[in-house]
């Protein structure tokens, strides 16, 4: 394991206590809302902050061990750090920015510049070598920051919200380029993001943080399909219900939901993809086991589709086509029925 870490730390309103590991070449996405302890974790890994207690091992080197009194400075850790707003040195050219790491470690100027040049070529930004950071676009600056962090060949690469500084128009293309570049990194990669899409696209494994605690670990597909936290569910648009399962029925507050799985029992999470929910004028008859009446509280365009929120018990969101909206004359305040087949539900232990 290239990275093995446990970090505990007090924040003003909660305690961070997480365990994290990553293999060489693996990209771990630390996903969570703002203020969930993600950045603190990253800063502890880099040595920019010291945890109250914990231990961090990077490629077999103990860089942090609170019980043994070890707390290596950032410069002594084999870590590359890409900051949220990149923090390229404004007084240095792109080439000098990338050569900064080797120079700081005592590499001769000529060799440092040659190494920097190699990375600029690898990231297809060699033509920017003489520019100052102020003359770069967001995507270019990100590549320079990545090259600067990787030129010293770190065992651990950290990225703090690597796409947050970009405008929506360029995010998608930069994201896919970043994915390509991250897949070629030798060491372990930990990236922090509050955007599930970034985590889904960039990470091999997602660690969901809430209030300083790990609430879920899994592959991106897993986390998206079966979110264990309201935060992720809301962001991926999934309806998330918590309840008690028994004999194929889950009691969710005052409502009862029929699920396909009769074996599951105890506290569970029911995830309902909004695409699986049908909207009707009248109480539907048919194979759908679950039907709920309610009033439409909002209609919202989502790309080519429309998200319909209904104040049923429990409140649910469905996704329908604009054609269906017109055909059913859906509008805010309209009385409708929702239905979903038991087999279209995802049920898993909470």
């Amino acid at each position: 394991m290239s990275l093995a870490a446990r970090i505990a730390m007090e924040r003003p309103d909660f305690t961070v206590d997480i365990t994290l590991d990553a293999a060489d070449g693996e990209v771990v996405g630390l996903l969570g809302p703002n203020g969930s302890g993600k950045s603190t974790t990253l800063r502890c890994l880099a040595g920019l902050e010291s945890p109250r207690s914990g231990n961090i091992i990077i490629s077999g080197t103990v860089v942090e061990d609170s019980s043994g009194g070890i707390d290596l400075a950032p410069a002594q850790r084999s870590v590359g750090y890409v900051f949220q707003d990149y923090l390229l040195f404004p007084h240095l050219t792109v080439l000098d920015n990338v050569a900064f790491g080797p120079r700081a470690r005592g590499v001769a100027k000529r060799d440092a510049e040659a190494a920097a040049q190699t990375w600029l070529e690898r990231f297809e930004i060699a033509d920017l070598a003489d520019r100052k950071p102020g003359q770069l676009s967001g995507g270019q600056a990100q590549r320079v920051a990545l090259a600067r962090a990787l030129v010293t060949d770190p065992d651990l690469l950290l990225l703090d919200e690597p796409l947050a500084a970009l405008d929506a128009g360029t995010r998608a293309s930069v994201r896919s380029v970043l994915r390509r570049h991250l897949s070629g990194v030798r060491g372990a990669v930990v990236l922090v993001t509050h955007d599930p899409l970034d985590a889904m696209v960039l990470a091999d494994r997602v660690v969901v943080l809430e209030q300083g605690q790990v609430v879920q670990v899994g592959t991106p597909a897993d986390v998206a399909r079966r979110p264990a936290s309201t935060y992720v569910a809301q962001l991926v648009g999934v309806n998330l219900l918590r309840g008690e399962a028994q004999d194929g029925l889950v009691s969710v507050g005052d409502a009862v939901v029929a699920v396909g799985d009769r074996r599951i029992a105890g506290p569970v999470i029911v995830a309902i993809r909004p695409e699986a929910i049908s909207v009707h004028h009248q109480r539907p008859e048919g194979s759908a086991r679950n039907t709920w009446p309610g009033r439409i509280t909002s209609l919202e365009a989502r790309g080519d589709l429309v998200r319909v929120e209904v104040d049923s018990v429990p409140p649910l969101a469905a996704i329908v086509t604009p054609g269906a909206v017109a055909e059913l004359a859906l509008h805010e305040g309209a009385e409708v029925w929702l239905s979903v087949k038991a087999v279209d539900l995802d049920v898993y232990p909470a």
């Binding site: 410069a75 850790r77 590359g80 900051f83 040195f89 120079r103 700081a104 962090a149 010293t152």
Partner: peptide, 25 residues
């Protein structure tokens, strides 16, 4: 001050940071 942090993660000593980052800035 985060420019100095960035320099530290790149392996720069405090003296190197002072000469190459802080004072030029």
């Amino acid at each position: 001050p985060r420019f100095e942090e960035a320099a530290a993660t790149l392996g720069a000593s405090r003296w190197h940071i002072l000469r190459r980052v802080t004072l030029p800035l």
